[in-house]
């Protein structure tokens, strides 16, 4: 038991590495602020394209979305970060992470938006258009508010996944929370920094996990 506590819950070491991990946490949050809005915007675009009346546009978009949903994000990231330099294109870790995340998260967000838009009845379109609203106005004021409300649990749930996903940026030496913790682990030869990082992730995401459960119940009750 003592060995266990020493290895995993060593408060002395935790205290020492706390500032480093806090810096990592900020970097994680910074990354989230970059990739979540990008993914939400890209997802909306993909959803609209995949619902296009032009078959070719819709099918190309759906194929692209499925391609990026089939490729593990870590594979995308490593391909961009370690593969592209061989072609003479060197991306910074931030650029590689943002690009890989953009491909992955916007595909997932896109599918969620699409389900949301499809869940709004055709009559809503027709009613809005019959009062003279243009297609973009109808989308903005009538369809999207209902679509987002219908799939809010999925949107929040996917956002949690995106935050968790930022941990793979550590693989390309992006100094986010897990990278900092793993550095600290290899220096101190003790797992307490990783436990501390785990606690930070859980503290950050647990409220959102609870929120998703509540939203799911609300939507189910409606």
């Amino acid at each position: 038991m003592e060995v266990f506590l020493h290895q995993f819950l060593n408060f002395e070491i935790m205290q020492k590495v706390f500032p480093l991990l806090l810096k990592g946490l900020w970097t994680t949050l910074y990354l989230c602020v970059l990739v979540i809005p990008l993914g939400l915007a890209g997802g909306l675009l993909l959803a609209l394209l995949s619902l296009s009346r032009r078959r070719a546009v819709a099918w190309t978009t759906i194929a692209l979305v499925d391609l990026f949903r089939a490729a593990p994000p870590l594979v995308l990231l490593i391909l961009l970060y370690s593969g592209l330099p061989f072609a003479g294109i060197k991306l910074t870790p931030t650029a590689a992470v943002c690009l890989a995340f953009f491909c992955n998260t916007s595909s997932y967000y896109g599918e969620i938006y699409r389900a949301g838009i499809e869940s709004v009845g055709r009559g809503q379109w027709e009613a809005a258009r019959s009062t003279g609203l243009s297609a973009p106005q109808t989308l903005t004021y009538v369809i999207l508010p209902q679509a987002v409300r219908n799939v809010l649990p999925d949107l929040v749930s996917n956002t949690i996944e995106v935050v968790k996903l930022t941990s793979i940026a550590s693989v390309v030496s992006f100094p986010e929370l897990l990278y900092s913790a793993d550095m600290a682990r290899s220096v101190t030869l003790n797992s307490s920094p990783v436990v501390l990082a785990a606690v930070m992730y859980i503290l950050l995401l647990w409220p959102l996990v609870r929120l998703v459960s509540r939203l799911e119940r609300q939507v189910a009750a409606r």
Binding site: I160, K164, T166, S167, I168, D182, A198, I202, W206, L208
Partner: peptide, 13 residues
């Protein structure tokens, strides 16, 4: 809740 909130890579490491 823990395994929904914890990134799998953290648990793996």
């Amino acid at each position: 809740d823990v395994f929904r909130a914890l990134p799998p890579l953290v648990a793996i490491l």
